[in-house]
Amino acid sequence: MKKITLIKGDGIGPEVTACAKKVLDLLVDDLIWTEVSAGLETLEKYGELIPKAVFDSIEETRLVLKGPLTTPIGEGFRSINVMLRKKYDLFCNMRPALTIPGVVSRYEAIDLVIFRENTEDLYAGIESRTDEDTRHSIKVITRKGSTRIIKAAFEYALAHNRHKVTLVHKANIMKETDGLFLQVGREIAKAYPDIVFEGIIVDNMCMQLVMNPHQFDVIVTMNLYGDILSDLCAGLVGGLGVVSSANIGDNFALFEPVHGSAPDIAGKNIANPIAMLLSGAMLLEYIGYYNEGKALRTAIQEVLKDPSNHTTDLGGKCKTDAFTDAVCKAIAIGG
């Protein structure tokens, strides 16, 4: 029996989280869900972006599946997602970018995993006004933060038979902050002699990913670069609608799609649930249901081989519930 906090989210969030819950319950019969609400719609209804019940549930289950949330512009938290990552020290953001057969993309056979440090860098939110015409934002990089995300990348590479870790930085210019990150990477790499290690400057990395993404395997970097590069890599495999993410700390873990809440299509039964389903697969694997996670990925791939199962964003006409039912059928056949 495993308890999970389900944050339904805004816009299409309730639709795609309902899909994920249906599929995960089919795969595993002892999941216990606590459904809670947060975000813009919750603020409008109850006067709070994140009610206390959300925090209480997270602190009980320590495991979260979350739909997309809308952060109000000009008020409230800088970002609800950033706040949750910092509050629960979810230092490791893991974003796979994997080619899915049947999804049109510019490249074939992409299989990358990005490890992004999730709590430091410019996203620490340390900003100030020196005068009316000048603003400062402080970049924070620590040895502790650098060590744990780089170790996570190497340990993943070791456990999954990956052969190369690429550390992305701008240490040629930011010699103290990025220089520390690169220094820590070089030190840690010595403990993994069977894994190739390289450091690449971030602007060159962007060019190299577009020219030849197949040269990379596991990528590890700081918060801002990771935010940018992970979306770039999503573009290599078909967009944000087909990529998942995990935010993992020592005591808590949160799984979510990285696309927006898409309020313009909410309630129309046309949202693509793939990113949410794949995030659910990552959750299953995290709690030890490896075969079930693999079965879900395989079912999605089988369903997408038929163009009639493609949702609007993938160039088809399939409805959200019909896609979910097709995945459930594929699981039943494969099981």
Rank of each mutant, 00 (worst) to 15 (best):
V82K: 02
F55D: 13
I114M: 15
I80F: 06
T119Y: 08
V64K: 04
G47A: 13
R106M: 06
P68L: 12
Y46G: 03
M83N: 03
E44H: 02
S79W: 13
I80P: 02
D131G: 02
V103R: 03
R116W: 10
E127N: 05
I126K: 14
G74D: 09
C92R: 12
E44P: 00
K45P: 02
D131V: 14
K86F: 04
T99R: 09
N81G: 13
V104M: 14
D56G: 09
L43W: 12
S137C: 14
T61P: 06
R85V: 05
S79Y: 14
I138N: 00
T42M: 09
I138H: 03
L49E: 11
R106G: 03
T42N: 04
R95Y: 11
A97H: 04
M83I: 09
H136N: 06
L49W: 08
F55A: 09
D121H: 06
T99F: 10
T99Y: 12
V104F: 07
T71R: 04
Y88L: 04
T71N: 03
E117Y: 09
P96D: 08
R85D: 02
E48W: 07
Y123I: 04
V82H: 04
G74N: 11
A53H: 08
R116V: 10
I126D: 06
I114V: 15
T42Y: 07
A53T: 13
I126C: 04
E117T: 03
L90E: 00
Y46C: 09
T99A: 10
K66V: 08
G47I: 15
S105P: 07
F91C: 01
E60H: 10
K45W: 08
L122V: 10
F55M: 12
K45T: 00
M83C: 04
V113Q: 02
T71G: 02
E132R: 06
G102V: 03
R78A: 10
I100L: 14
T70G: 00
A97D: 08
V54G: 02
A124W: 12
R95M: 11
